[in-house]
Amino acid sequence: MPDDVATRPVRLPDDRWHPLEIVFWLGLVTAFFLFPGYRVLGSQILITGLFAVSLDLILGYAGIVSLGHAAFFGVGAYTAGLLAVYGWGEPITGLFAGAATAAIVGYGTSFLVVRGHDLARLMMTLGIGFLLFEAANKAAFVTGGVDGLSGVVMWKLFGVFTFDFAGRTAYLYSLAVLFILFVVLRRVVASPFGLSLIGIRERSRRIPAIGAPLRQREVAIFTISAAVAGMAGALLAQTTQFVGLDVLSFSRSAEVLIILILGGAGRLYGGLIGAVVYMVAQDILSTYISAAYWRFWIGLLLVAIVLVAHGGILDGATAIYRRLTRGRS
C-alpha cells in the first residue's frame, strides 16, 4: 500500500460512508429485534467491540502493541462503578467520569510506553496492567478485591429507561454510545492528525523530518485510546451493575488483542467484526458443542483464519473481494 501513496494526489481520505458501513450499523440495530433473547450478549459484544476499537487506535494507527489495555478499561469500570456505589448512579456522567480517569491514567503512563521499541512497549503495557491489577486487589476496602464491587445501583437512563435484566436498555445504550464514539473516531483517524499517526507506524524515523512531533502525537493517541477504553469499561460496569477484578486482568488485555487481530487492525471496523465473530463463536461453541472443550474449536478457528487470510478477517475479505472483482473485469 505505501507504494501507491506517492502516485496518488495528496488529499485527505474522503469521509463518505460506504454502503457496507451503513449495512453494518443497520445490522446491529436489526439484531436488537431479531434476537431478543440475546440482548445481554449483544450489549457485551458491543462493549468489547468498543474496547477493541480503542486498542485499534494505538495498535492499528500508531503501531503500539499493548498487552495491558485492560488497565484503562478497568479504571473506567471502577470509576463508574464506585460513583454509583457511593450514590451517583447517573449513567451519562458516569461514562464521562470513567473516560476522564482512564484518560488521566493513560496520559500519565503514556510517557513510559512510547519511548521503547515494540517488545519493550509490549512488556511496559503488560507491567502497568499488572501493577494496577495488584493495586486494585490490595485496595479491597475500595474495590472489593477479588470478591468484586457489588451494590452498583444505576439510575434510569435520561430518567426514563431502567437498566432491565433482559438487556433492552443495555443494548441500545451501548449501541448508541458505540456509534457516537465511532463517528467521532472515524473523523479523527481521517484527519491530518490521524494520517500522521499512520506515518508514525509506517516510517517512524522520517516523521520528525516533515515536522510532525512524533512523541507528542503518540502520547495524544494513547490518551484518547485510554479514554475510549475507559468508556467501554464504564459501560460494562453500568450495564452489569457489578465490577469484578477481572476488568483489569491480563486475560482481558490478551483477549481484546486477539479479538482485534482476528478482525484486522488498522481500520476501526476490525475490532467490531472481531468482537462479533469471536464472542458469537464462543457462545455457540460453548452452548451447543461443548462447555468444556469449546476452546479447542475457537483455537482451530484462529489458526485456520491466520493460515487462510493474513491480517485478520477484514484484510482476508478485502483480498478475496479484490480477486473476485479483478477476475470479473
Binding site: 495498535l59 502493541v65 515494540d118 490478551a254 488483542l257 486477539i258 487481530i261 482476528l262 487492525a265 476452546r295 479447542f296 475457537i298 483455537g299 482451530l300 478457528l301 484462529l302 489458526v303 483464519i305 491466520v306 493460515l307 493474513h310 491480517g311 485478520g312
Partner: peptide
C-alpha cells in the same frame, strides 16, 4: 506479521 503470529500461536495454545 507479528500480529498474525500472535493470533496463530494463541490459537494453537487454546487447542
Amino acid at each position: 506479521s507479528h500480529l498474525d503470529q500472535v493470533l496463530f500461536s494463541i490459537g494453537l495454545t487454546f487447542m
